[in-house]
Design a protein around this nucleic acid. Structure first.
Lengths: 258, 258
DNA sequence: CCGTTTATCTCGTAG
DNA sequence: CTACGAGGTAAACGG
């Protein structure tokens, strides 16, 4: 599992270690210690000398963590080139990519640990309660939104943007449904209004087009704007009744299960 | 720097290790090995047996990385309780929080490495080229947007949302400026339109309110909608002339420097 | 490549 | 607590 480990390596050893493992790309590499970090690309940043943890995954993604916070201080989702070199008796890591052109530079002033881990096999990962799953469930059971609703289309592309669910109600009126897995904001209302406007323009003024925002909840200002625009809200939760008790999740049959 | 390291620990040793260091909260803890991960909260997820890397920082944030990708497979930005226990001869990590109520459970089937790192001192971090910096620069030099423009307010709070820059032009007309550090989208146009409408309502119909979207570029559909609504676009770049050459950044005086 | 949307978004900030 | 918007957002998906 541990492919290689160095403790307080010399600049030369660290550079060799980094180049060796970034070339083969079959390990998760990490280096912890005192370093300085610079970034230049879409923005620019500098981090003064401090204790950081650098992670390089097999796909060439790079992240530099500082002691707290869930997000890395600096990162690079993909890299075209990762190289380490020794200059002025310190090891320097350079990670760059094109499109957008950017560069992360780490100067290891005092590396403490370097680890190369075999982290090969990943297990299957399944996420439930995403908006995509919500969409599937409501497409299969549109009556959860409103009795008599028939879904005509999912992800219907209209000028600038896709309509989550395009449907027709019991009276034959066209209905645009915008789904939110979390609390709906004014942004969602703007989105829905834009889609309704597009559909209205396509169908002509004699047609009636309804807009429904469906989600677990809505903010007060969003509800106001929604009603001002003649749009509607339907309460629908992303997850079924939260087995908020304890794991392991007790199997409970629900529309959202499959 | 390495406070403690275990190799292929027993369930009991791993649980003791985790409880010891999560209690003191003065180390960055990591465990790598074969595990299963379950999450239940805002959504729900399961990860089958695979090789993962678990990081627990001093602030109680938790992230579980799979072998590729910049984002963790599972995470918890803050935790109210982190505990490890041994059940059925495996070590299980439970990390939970309230608000929102969620739980991450890691079952370590075959832990390979456990590390506690002292990662204390963080250096100062400075980011340049953020929207906040843009706002500062344009507040100081509004003529970059338009000659004769006078800035009245920054981050003026209007019903639901803050106006980046509120100003008056050479003719005395009020101007709402919305800044974008990246390419402006329809979302930005909606935002600007909402703010302009708010200001127009406040000032009354006899006043003329202009809306300006300022950024490095704008998408074609956004430009269309912008012009349809009688709003304007001004090209302004977030970073000064990108010293896109090589690091270290050559010092170049610019409005954006301070 | 552009353009849009989702995200267990995270994070800060203001009321 | 709620609500809103920024983010070097990242990542997916369609045209």
């Amino acid at each position: 599992m541990i492919r290689e480990q160095l403790t307080a390596p010399s600049p030369q050893d660290l550079a060799a270690f980094l180049n060796r493992h970034t070339r083969t790309r079959d390990c998760l590499i990490q280096v912890a210690g005192l370093a300085e970090v610079t970034y230049l690309g879409r923005a620019a940043s500098t981090a003064d000398l401090g204790a950081y943890l650098v992670l390089i995954k097999q796909d060439g993604s790079l992240q530099i963590h500082h002691p707290t916070g869930i997000k890395p201080m600096n990162w690079q989702p993909k890299t075209d080139r990762i190289t380490a070199e020794v200059a002025e008796d310190v090891c320097m890591l350079l990670a760059s990519r094109r499109s957008p052109e950017e560069l992360v530079q780490v100067v290891f002033l005092e590396p403490q640990v370097a680890l190369a881990l075999e982290l090969a096999q990943a297990g299957g990962f399944v996420l439930k309660g995403s908006e995509a799953q919500m969409q599937q469930a409501l497409a299969d059971h549109p009556e959860l939104i409103e009795p008599g609703l028939r879904v005509l289309n999912r992800e219907l592309m209209v000028e600038s943007g896709g309509i989550d669910l395009y449907a027709q109600d019991a009276q034959g009126r066209y209905v645009v449904v915008e789904l939110k897995r979390g609390r709906a904001t004014q942004h969602a209302v703007s989105q829905l209004a834009r889609y309704v406007r597009s559909v209205q323009q396509t169908l002509g003024n004699q047609a009636t087009v309804r807009g429904i925002l469906a989600g677990p909840s809505i903010t007060a200002p969003a509800r106001l704007e929604l009603e001002n625009r003649g749009l509607e809200f339907r309460e629908i939760s992303a997850l079924p009744e939260q087995a908020a008790s304890a794991l392991p999740v007790t199997a409970q049959p629900s529309l959202f299960d499959p």
